[in-house]
């Protein structure tokens, strides 16, 4: 089964070490995610593409305890088989805090400040039988 990314241009894929794709303001150095053309910090109009760091610390988190509405959600929405998933913001040093799914969904195991690393996780199967993947962060063992 082939793997396809949920979208192009948000993370590098395929890759042994996938990274999120962001922007940096040429004028003030502010980082943005996802890619955007204008800077919300200094109103600068010129940005350049950058790859974001793969490791950071968990700034805050929650657990998605019920199936999201589909659309827009592409994952499992069957209440019988739906598995809760973690969601958090990971602070990438010197860059930005990014929102992502977390591979851990147990409130007992999620701690603000813990080390996290970016991974790619399966999300759903598309009409052609491909496995759709998206990005997530996993606790660093």
């Amino acid at each position: 089964m082939a793997q396809v990314p949920v979208t192009e241009g948000v993370f590098t894929w395929p890759s042994e070490t996938p990274q999120l794709i962001g922007s940096r303001c040429v004028a003030c150095g502010n980082h943005m995610f996802p890619v955007q053309a204008g800077c919300p910090k200094c109103t600068g109009e010129k940005t350049e593409q950058v790859l974001l760091g793969r490791r950071g610390t968990l700034w805050t988190w929650t657990v998605q305890g019920f199936p999201p509405k589909a659309p827009p959600y592409a994952g499992d929405v069957d209440p019988k088989t739906f598995k809760a998933f973690g969601v958090g913001y990971v602070e990438l040093p010197g860059q930005i805090k990014v929102e992502a799914r977390l591979t851990e969904a147990d409130p007992e195991k999620l701690k603000i400040g813990m080390e996290m690393e970016m991974v790619i996780v399966p999300l759903s199967t598309d009409a052609s039988g491909n496995e759709v993947v998206t990005f997530a962060f996993a606790p660093v063992a």
């Binding site: 949920v6 979208t7 948000v10 996802p34 805050t60 988190w61 929650t62 657990v63 998605q64 999201p68 659309p71 827009p72 959600y73 592409a74 994952g75 998933f85 969601v87 958090g88 913001y89 929102e99 992502a100 799914r101 999300l123 759709v132 998206t134 990005f135």
Partner: peptide
């Protein structure tokens, strides 16, 4: 982007939980 909702992130409830 569509990827945001498709990935299970576009829920206002998540923001409130995280804040």
């Amino acid at each position: 982007g569509n990827w945001y909702g498709a990935s299970g992130l576009a829920l206002t409830t998540q923001f409130f939980g995280m804040k």
